[in-house]
C-alpha cells in the first residue's frame, strides 16, 4: 500500500545496481540492474539454476551479495531493522513445521508480532478476512500437519500476508499445484495487486508468468536478458531469425541477424531452387526454451 505522503515521487520498491553473487569461482549473478516501482507485479522468469532464488534471497535480506548495491523499500535489506521487516512479506515453501498447531493459532501467533507496526496500514490482517481471502475459511481449526499440499501452500501465502506487506516475495509459489489450485492462486494474486501490494514472484513456467505479471524479467545465466510487459516481450525482436527452405535436394536452415539482406541475396540467384521458403523470428518462448535446454 502506498503511503499518501510518498505518492508524489514515490521511490521504487526495489532498486539494484550491479548486483553480483559468486560462490567461489561460480558466478551466479553477473551484475543485475533492476528497478521495480510500487504496485508492480513482477515475475522473475528463468530456468532452474538461473539465479532466481539467489536474487530473491538477497532482496529479502537473507543473503549478502558479493558486489553491487541493493535498496528495498528505501533500505539495504542486509541491515534493515524490524520496522522494515514488518513491511515485507515472504511466502515460504514450508513443508512440515508447526504440524500440531491449528491454522488459526499459527496466524494469530505470527500476526501478534505485527501489532506494534500498525499505522496508516492496520496490521495484522484480521484472521477471518485473511482466511477467506486465501480460501482457508473452513480449515481455521485444522491441525496444520493434516492440510493437503495445496491447502498448506495457501497457509504459506496467508502467513506471508498476515502483516499486510507493502512488498511481497514469492519464490516458486505454485510448484506442485494442480491446475485448479494454480488458477485460484492467480486470482488471489490479482486481488492482491488491486490492493497496490508490490509483488515479486519467481517461476520457471512461462504461461504462469504471462498470466500474472504486469512485467516479466527473463533471467538466464545470472543476467537479465529481457524485461517488459508480457505483450511487449511477445512482440520484441530477439535478434536472430531463421530462414528455412528446400533446394530440391535437402532442407536448409540459415540463422541470421538480418533476414532481409540474406533473402535479397538468396532470391536474386537465378540458378537456385527455392521451395517451402519460411522466415521465423525468435519469440520469447524460443529464447526461453533455448535457455532452458542448456
Amino acid at each position: 500500500m502506498i503511503d499518501s505522503t510518498t505518492t508524489g515521487n514515490a521511490p521504487p520498491a526495489i532498486r539494484t545496481r550491479g548486483l553480483q553473487m559468486s560462490y567461489g569461482t561460480n558466478r551466479v549473478l553477473r551484475g543485475i540492474d533492476l528497478e521495480i516501482a510500487r504496485g508492480e507485479v513482477v515475475v522473475l522468469l528463468g530456468p532452474n539454476g538461473a539465479g532466481k532464488t539467489t536474487t530473491v534471497e538477497i532482496l529479502e535480506g537473507f543473503r549478502h551479495p558479493s558486489a553491487g548495491s541493493v535498496e528495498v523499500l528505501g533500505a539495504d535489506p542486509a541491515d534493515a531493522g524490524h520496522a522494515w521487516r514488518a513491511r515485507v512479506g515472504i511466502v515460504l515453501q514450508s513443508w512440515r513445521d508447526h504440524a500440531k498447531w491449528r491454522v488459526r493459532e499459527l496466524l494469530e501467533y505470527l500476526g501478534g508480532f505485527y501489532v506494534p507496526y500498525s499505522g496508516a496500514v492496520a496490521r495484522p490482517w484480521p484472521i477471518d478476512e485473511l482466511l477467506a481471502a486465501v480460501g482457508l475459511a473452513d480449515d481455521a481449526d485444522t491441525p496444520i500437519g493434516k492440510l493437503s499440499g495445496g491447502r498448506r501452500r495457501r497457509l504459506d501465502v496467508a502467513s506471508g500476508l498476515i502483516g499486510r506487506p507493502e512488498l511481497l516475495f514469492l519464490d516458486e509459489p505454485t510448484a506442485g499445484f494442480d491446475p485448479q489450485a494454480r488458477r485460484d492462486f492467480h486470482d488471489l494474486l490479482a486481488s492482491l495487486s488491486d490492493l497496490e501490494t508490490t509483488i515479486l514472484m519467481t517461476t520457471h513456467d512461462l504461461d504462469e508468468a504471462e498470466k500474472v505479471a504486469s512485467r516479466i524479467l527473463l533471467l538466464v545465466d545470472g543476467g537479465i536478458i529481457a524485461d517488459g510487459s508480457p505483450d511487449t516481450l511477445r512482440r520484441q525482436d530477439f535478434g536472430k531469425a531463421e530462414v528455412r527452405w528446400f533446394d530440391g535436394e535437402q532442407h536448409l536452415v540459415h540463422p541470421t541477424d538480418d533476414p532481409v539482406a540474406f533473402l535479397r541475396g538468396l532470391l536474386t540467384d537465378p540458378e537456385a531452387t527455392i521451395e517451402e521458403l519460411e522466415v521465423r523470428r525468435n519469440s520469447l518462448e524460443d529464447v526461453y526454451l533455448k535457455a532452458v535446454e542448456r
Binding site: E60, R85, S94, W95, D97, H98, F113, P116
Partner: peptide
Amino acid sequence: MEREDGTLLRMKAVPHGLQG
C-alpha cells in the same frame, strides 16, 4: 529440526520473530 523444517526461516521473516 526447526532449522530444517522452515520454522526458523518463518520466524526470521517476522519482525522480532526470532527473539520471540
